[in-house]
Amino acid sequence: MEYLSYLVATGISTGALYALVALGIVVIYKATEVVNFAHGEMFMLGGFFAFTFHVMLGWPYLPSFALAVALAFAVGVAVDRIAFRPLMQRRTLVSVLLVMIGLSFVLKGVARWIWGGKGDYLTFPPLISPEPLSFAGIMVMSQQLVVLGAACAVMIVFALFFKLTRAGRFMQATADNPKAAKLVGLRTDRVYMYTFGVGSAVAAAAAVLMAPLTLLYPDIGFMLFVKAFAAAVLGGLTSIPGAVVGGFLIGIIEQLAAGYLHTAMQEVAAFIVIMIVMIFIPTGLFGLGRIRKV
């Protein structure tokens, strides 16, 4: 019993990381109908930015955190300007995806170029004590609880944002029908721009919080992106609560697969989930009930 509860508890705490990354993917997808293939690289860059300010330059934690998130926002805006806006006018999704793939490789190469000589896996100090905490006999890394809290907070903020604010409804309207949104006078291009910025900023925040546990290296992004994408797909790709639930589920599935089947399954579980969901329930658990023809 202890074995199972450990696996589930750890699944939830690692799932929080996937959920937080998946949130960014879903927010961008909701508004733009594009999966940001370079989202994992946003996470990586956010972590390296914070490392540069906090560790290399010795600035205090919070300003470094804020600046890293702000810079990631700027990178997100740049992604919109470079990869999305020019192509959206041509409306060729295949091209957008190809550019994103290219971008993810360029960003990896650039990160290697700048930070690659500093060591194999760079370390970043945690926000709170590194000691694990006990919950009813189950030990959990305290840093993971921070991420868990952050994932829930970000999810609630986004859910409220989309429901209650005008900007949120603009985003949703833009996603549902860009042409109509434009016809009624929405500045859809701005909506896209902010969406990319916000998505990247969330990834960067996740990176700064998680870096003490995940460590920082140029190739951290891809695996994280795949797992977060599996989470997002499981949750239906358009649903914000779906992304969070999907994140937790992927976390737990991985743990159970590794714990009960074979430890080799831990790595590949996310890919299998993607394939199964795509083929049998393409709308995911919280999807819209129909697939947009994209």
Partner: peptide
Amino acid sequence: ELGVDANDATPQALK
């Protein structure tokens, strides 16, 4: 087994 990108090794540790 443990993947090169693994962020968690609780199942391995438990075993």
